[in-house]
């Protein structure tokens, strides 16, 4: 089947690509655009490692087709810091040692950012439920939750 021509804006840049109709957005990001900060942990929507925002909505990029992204705005982990300046969530993850292996971290950061945009003052339990779709096998989540709450606090002040 012939490839589809897609126009998107990724992390603020206009980006066009050709994709097979059945190719996922995750595969496009990684294999075609080499934006490998977005990870694949399962490919079935169960782990959240591939979290991105598509037109402001938090999605698993493994469940989105590349072709569906036409004319959309995408944000990935690569767009989270502002040049040298880390996003407060990124900084708090470092301060709280909220990552061990770090492979879940990009997805969790993207998901947490999207939470704080909607709810700048979440409770612990709100953070836990919002991040329930992002698996982390290393940390037991403690330091992640603390880092998100602390970042929220800093961003409010």
């Amino acid at each position: 089947m012939s490839q589809v021509h897609i126009k998107t804006k990724i992390n603020g840049d206009n980006i066009e690509f050709l994709c097979d109709p059945e190719e996922t957005l995750l595969d496009i990001l990684r294999d075609k655009l080499h934006l490998t900060g977005t990870k694949e942990g399962c490919g079935t929507g169960d782990c959240g490692a591939c979290s991105i925002t598509l037109d402001g909505k938090l999605v698993c990029s493994c469940l989105v087709l590349g072709a569906e992204a036409d004319n959309s705005e995408i944000s990935t982990i690569e767009g989270m810091s502002n040049g040298e300046k880390l996003h407060p969530l990124q900084q708090k993850f470092l301060d709280h040692a909220a990552l061990q292996c770090g492979v879940c971290t990009p997805g969790i950061l993207v998901a947490a950012k999207s939470l704080l945009e909607k709810n700048p003052d979440p409770t612990e339990s709100e953070v836990r439920y919002w991040l329930a779709g992002n698996l982390c096998r290393c940390t037991g989540y403690d330091k992640i939750i603390k880092a998100v709450l602390d970042a929220a606090k800093e961003m409010r002040s």
Binding site: T36, E78, M80, L86, G102
Partner: peptide, 16 residues
């Protein structure tokens, strides 16, 4: 740390 929170760190599947 910074490589891991910015998505730059290269894991097993990240090399092309």
């Amino acid at each position: 740390g910074i490589e891991k929170v910015t998505g730059k760190a290269q894991y097993g599947a990240d090399l092309y």
